[in-house]
Nucleic acid binder design. Structure first.
Lengths: 342, 342
DNA sequence: GTGAAAGCGCTAACAC
DNA sequence: GTGTTAGCGCTTTCAC
């Protein structure tokens, strides 16, 4: 229960006629307390509405049961789904979360975030901000200097670093192969911003699938958006201009695919007859687009949950055996959902 | 900079040949330190990569510069936009965030969350989980017992409680009046789940506007969804069944509106000729639906930002003058965006 | 201007 | 089983 005037372990000890240590033992469910004493202390605790002070515990234990989470672009669907998975799994496993959102992750604004987490004694860090630009560099620079376990999400494999990510490359290949199977001959791509690793992976998957099918890839066949529907529209119009024979598009995400569905009929292209579309992400709404959108579903909730599970095992490993866990590269396979747009 | 072996205030003091107090003074930018000493201490700090331990500071100061944030349904767009506003403004004002996501907020799982926040010495709490069911009751029960400032989001006005919310009622009225002006005679509503306060407000706004226009409202004229597109489709089909003469729909949110846009043509209703649609929320994608969706835009980012601003002012008020701020009911007006669907 | 002492609330290590 | 003694790292009196 919540109370204004906070009782401390000291008050409980005094009222129960035991030492503070004994109270602490009861608090931590240690065995070496007689059942009788334990009961009495517990009663007094209830009576005084005693609540242990977590800050004092953290300081004393040198362990906070808190993880730091770095996110970015929370106003978009993807990052928040990941965060949702993180919050749920962390709750399950008894950890709290300290949250920071960063705008863009260049080394300059990363250091303060890590320092802040460290000052707050977090037991581990989940880096859930996407890899953009020079991410790689700071990892190499900074990581060796920090002694807190970190898990990275959505990032290229890297030595000595644990990473959890969707397999964007394979996901893209599956999408494009599907279009090929549907008999499409001129399959274009509208990529996300290419300073994002995910965007690059999906583009590479598209290229890979085409090349494998003996189709030559050149720069007429793709344009770049910034994930938003608005940018998708612009990118689509640009694409049509320079690659008019296009009859299939693999879009970097569902939002950009959406604007293709809207714009194509306006310029006389029927979907899927004249133009087949496949998106990426598998957001819930994509089923209700017109026509319903084929897409590559990635389970971002699961991504977050795995990250937490992994982090917990790393922190406990570190605590118990005082040895680091060997880093892992964990990959989740996305899943093609075929609907009317292809 | 991040370093493994953490230097303490004690190490700095020793190396600088001063007392720990003096180091603490430099740390807190107190004036009563000679410029010379200050410089020397600062140099040593840099040299040792000294980073103050925030946990120790919190314990000692009895102030953490941390806010607790309770959210719900993070995997949906609305809550994460609000959270985004919160993170950004908190960062700006120098506060960190402790995040908890709750599934549903009945008294049973609320108390532990509040207790947890309190144990962690948060300076204030933002309750960003929507009002569902018996929310009201626990507020009355629990609030008087807690001495930490709390701001609630999206909730009915309540004595002695500070609340920040979109004016859902007025927003709904504006939407429905727009449909009336467009000459629609049979304006229906697909509501969100009515245990949500927001859903009730929007439904009441719809009723109010119709009643004011002299149109009788009865139960044939509305059905209920659960915010998802899928539920919107079901609710729409049900509505068409019992209210076939419908020629305008105000949907409880954009996702549910989306599935109407998809389903209506399938049953021979053209939009907007036979059926005008207005949604609620104004999500970015709604502009790219087919046809583009008229909607009531609410600025959820701003909602979060205001909540933080308000909370900071309350905590500082409490600290300095030791008197509570008078509670406010802050309302943000949403904005009608007219597009092709109406 | 600077330092010594006490304390924030709790836990770990060692006694008995 | 239980208590004593030291801290965890920092800030806040109150001296000087």
């Amino acid at each position: 229960m919540i109370k204004k005037n906070k009782a401390t372990i000291y008050d409980v000890a005094e009222k129960a006629g035991v030492s503070r240590q004994t109270v602490s033992r009861v608090l931590n469910n240690r065995l070496e307390v007689s059942e009788e004493t334990r009961q009495r202390v517990k009663e007094i605790m209830a009576e005084l509405n005693f609540q242990p002070n977590a800050v004092a515990q953290s300081l004393s234990r040198q362990k906070s049961f808190l993880f730091g989470v770095v996110t970015s672009g929370l106003k978009y669907l993807g990052p928040s789904r990941v965060l949702s998975g993180i919050t749920n799994k962390a709750e399950e496993l008894g950890y709290g979360l300290l949250l920071k959102e960063v705008q863009n992750s260049n080394s300059a604004n990363i250091i303060p975030v890590l320092d802040w987490f460290k000052a707050h004694q977090v037991d581990g860090i989940i880096w859930a901000a996407p890899e953009v630009e020079d991410n790689r560099q700071w990892i190499k620079d900074v990581l060796p200097m920090i002694d807190i376990p970190i898990i990275f999400l959505t990032m290229e494999e890297e030595e000595n670093v644990t990473i959890v990510t969707t397999d964007n490359f394979t996901g893209a290949r599956v999408a494009v192969n599907h279009l090929i199977q549907k008999g499409r001959k001129n399959i274009a791509h509208i990529s996300g911003p290419l300073d994002w690793w995910e965007a690059r992976q999906r583009k590479m998957g598209w290229e890979s699938a085409l090349t494998e099918a003996g189709i030559h890839v050149d720069d007429r066949m793709w344009t770049q958006g910034n994930w938003s529907s608005k940018s998708g529209k612009t990118a689509f119009l640009e694409l049509i201009e320079k690659y008019p024979e296009v009859d299939g598009i693999f879009a970097g995400n569902d939002q950009m695919a959406l604007s293709i569905l809207q714009t194509a009929p306006e310029i006389g292209k029927r979907i899927p007859q004249d133009l087949s579309i496949v998106g990426f992400d598998g957001i819930a709404e994509s089923e209700f687009y017109i026509p319903s959108l084929s897409t590559v579903y990635q389970n971002q909730d699961e991504l977050g949950r795995i990250a937490v599970t992994e982090l917990v095992s790393q922190t406990e490993m570190k605590l118990k055996e005082n040895k680091a866990v060997e880093p892992k590269y964990i990959t989740i396979q996305p899943e093609l959902i075929i609907r009317q747009s292809s």
